[in-house]
């Protein structure tokens, strides 16, 4: 059966309007069918997880939003994919997803790599939700290590897959100690680490998973996104949720929240710059991937965000390699 057919079966007439204001909340009961509709992908609950698990994850998400940047422990479940394939993000997405959502999944900016395709197919099958590759159309975007180039909008939710949620983990391996450091807002270790970068390399050499301070309190790992994307997290109109499945942590950045990349007065935070534009769409000021073309070392640089690149090419932009 096609995804289209699943979606058609799952929707009740007039059901999506339940949440809109109505002067008489009780008056519409008789209009609605008595039984809930059968779910797509029969045999699974909507979006795979059972309702008890969703409640537990939802409670963790609410506390994560109330305490921006703080890592809330949660009882991460085994998912039908291995740890490291985005089980944290998948559980967060499953807990928030509704029938009217439109889901986009990206892996290093790309909609068409294995991880992105299989997670998108997973939710199309277990939840019957509409899926898209277009950033502008999506209500929920699950991401592995990029933030889309197109600015996010109010009402969108960005769900990050996180491998190691603890920014201090490689400096202090004991969880009991890192908890204390966060409780005391004692982040000197992190500044020492950045300083040692400067002492060795002359500049801050951290290029991804670059630590940020959220709302002036907690230091947070933005997941292994390139530091190029850090400025997009600051004052972002979309809600940002982070799920780490193996490490069993959920954290969040509410919309319009100050997210500051750690730095020093004499070594201010800077993002990567690319000398050449995208070889396919000629975009500048975007994050580029290096693509090897042959054994002789020829290469080209193209947009990491495939949707952004395709939209630009559809609008007539052409790079030198197109």
């Amino acid at each position: 059966m096609s995804d289209e057919g699943h979606r058609g079966d799952a929707r009740l007439p007039g059901h999506e309007t339940d949440i809109t204001p109505s002067p008489e909340p009780h008056a519409r009961t008789e209009d609605l069918p008595a039984e809930p509709a059968p779910e797509p992908g029969t045999g699974y609950n909507f979006a795979y997880l059972d309702e008890g698990t969703k409640r537990m994850i939802r409670r963790a998400i609410l506390k994560a939003i109330a305490i921006p940047g703080y890592q809330v422990p949660f009882a991460s479940r085994e998912m039908p994919m291995p740890y490291g394939w985005g089980t944290g993000g998948v559980q967060v997405t499953a807990a928030i997803l509704g029938r009217s959502d439109v889901l986009k999944v990206i892996d290093q900016g790309s909609d068409d790599t294995t991880n992105a395709v299989s997670i998108r197919a997973f939710f199309a099958r277990t939840a019957g939700v509409a899926v898209t590759t277009r950033t502008a159309e999506a209500t929920v975007i699950q991401t592995r290590h990029r933030i889309p180039e197109r600015p996010l909008a109010e009402g969108q939710v960005l769900v990050y897959q996180v491998p190691i949620p603890e920014p201090l983990r490689f400096l202090e391996p004991r969880e009991t100690e890192t908890r204390q450091l966060h409780a005391l807002a004692e982040y000197g270790l992190m500044h020492v680490k950045l300083y040692e970068d400067i002492a060795r390399h002359g500049h801050i050499a951290t290029t991804y998973a670059y630590p940020v301070e959220v709302a002036g309190r907690y230091v947070m790992d933005p997941s292994p996104t390139p530091k190029f994307d850090n400025p997009k997290m600051d004052d972002c109109p979309a809600l940002q949720l982070f799920g780490a499945g193996r490490e069993k942590r959920i954290y969040a950045v509410p919309p319009h929240t100050r997210v500051r990349s750690l730095d020093f007065e004499d070594h201010p935070f800077r993002v990567q710059h690319f000398a050449e534009p995208c070889a396919l769409c000629a975009a500048r000021g975007v994050y580029l991937d290096e693509v090897l073309l042959d054994d002789a070392g020829r290469r080209m640089f193209v947009c990491s965000d495939t949707d952004h690149c395709e939209e630009r090419r559809a609008a007539g932009h052409r790079g030198e390699g197109a």
Partner: peptide
């Protein structure tokens, strides 16, 4: 509808 009503409320 426990599944979808709870999702909307959440």
């Amino acid at each position: 509808d426990p599944v979808h009503d709870a999702q909307r409320v959440f």
